[in-house]
């Protein structure tokens, strides 16, 4: 059984607000949530935000409704791209986040985001009329690469004109992608803007999703997005490199570099025999290459 996820809770510096959001999400039955940090390069004096560790935000994670586990909290970065230079591939700042999303504002950037950028989620803007039409080619490319499209609904709850834009944009998206790879998330700033998973599923019907697609949009498609994010961090989900703490005295930069070189070899060879680069000692690792 798939668990419900909400991959977009807006970050705010207010601790009580975040903890209230998390508690409500757990009460509604979301097993996994992602705290979203927005990054708009066009605004002056902006730097890529650094995710706060979750234990600084909340003392004790609430237990999910109907399960005995505490809620799982991830970090996510959304970059609003209005110029190709705004998205920097392989920026080290991006690696701190579990999920990476972009919100393209023009057709060219949407095309690039679908076909080229190494991201997990493409946000569809819901607060304005869409400045371009969705074309089948980039959307099919994105579906092939496993990139998800995200529609958030809390703007629709706040305001009547936003509701029109949300429904219009979401309907035109579902027309072109035929309901595949769509995720529905809240983008809630306050706890009262969250909705239960079954309500969201039914809301999906307004956006033109079918019953099954709408249910997947809050459960298994979100899980696919998370798995896609993991493959972005690792090489095809097989090789995983981590800086080990014990080896710190003996030249760590070289060791790190070596890990990277192996990683690139594995990817280029498409050699999918499982190797574990993380925990073998350095001497052994040299032999295996």
């Amino acid at each position: 059984m798939a668990v419900f996820m909400d991959l977009n809770l807006m970050f705010s510096a207010d601790r009580t607000r975040i903890s209230k959001l998390l508690e409500t999400a757990a009460h509604l039955g979301f097993s996994t949530v992602a705290i979203n940090y927005m990054f708009e390069p066009t605004l002056p004096l902006q730097e890529i935000p650094v995710p706060k560790p979750i234990n600084e935000l909340i003392d004790q994670l609430p237990v999910v409704q109907g399960r005995s586990r505490p809620i799982r909290v991830l970090n996510r970065l959304t970059v609003v791209v209005s110029d190709p230079s705004h998205y920097r591939p392989n920026a080290p700042e991006y690696r701190r986040f579990d999920l990476l999303a972009v919100q393209p504002t023009s057709e060219k950037l949407f095309h690039a985001a679908c076909m080229l950028y190494d991201i997990d989620i493409i946000c569809i803007s819901v607060t304005e009329k869409l400045p371009f039409f969705f074309k089948r080619a980039p959307i099919n490319g994105a579906i092939d690469r496993g990139v998800m499209f995200e529609v958030s609904y809390s703007a629709a709850i706040r305001d009547s004109t936003m509701r029109r834009y949300t429904i219009a944009n979401a309907a035109s998206l579902t027309d072109s992608c035929k309901g595949k790879n769509v995720i529905l998330s809240s983008a809630a700033e306050k706890a009262l803007e969250l909705r239960g998973p079954y309500d969201i599923t039914n809301l999906g019907l307004l956006f033109g999703l079918s019953d099954g697609d709408a249910k997947e949009a809050v459960s298994s498609t979100c899980r696919a997005a998370l798995l896609h994010a993991e493959t972005r961090k690792t090489a095809s989900g097989i090789v995983y490199t981590a800086r080990s703490q014990q080896e710190a005295p003996s030249d760590p930069p070289e060791g790190q570099f070596w890990c990277r070189s192996e990683l690139s070899i594995r990817v280029s060879d498409k050699n999918v025999t499982s190797t574990c680069a993380g925990d073998t000692p350095a001497a052994k690792r040299v032999k295996t290459t």
């Binding site: 709850i157 909705r195 039914n202 809301l203």
Partner: peptide, 10 residues
């Protein structure tokens, strides 16, 4: 009921 339900989130 689905049509009416879809209004409840608002």
């Amino acid at each position: 009921y689905q049509l009416l339900w879809s209004a409840l989130p608002f």
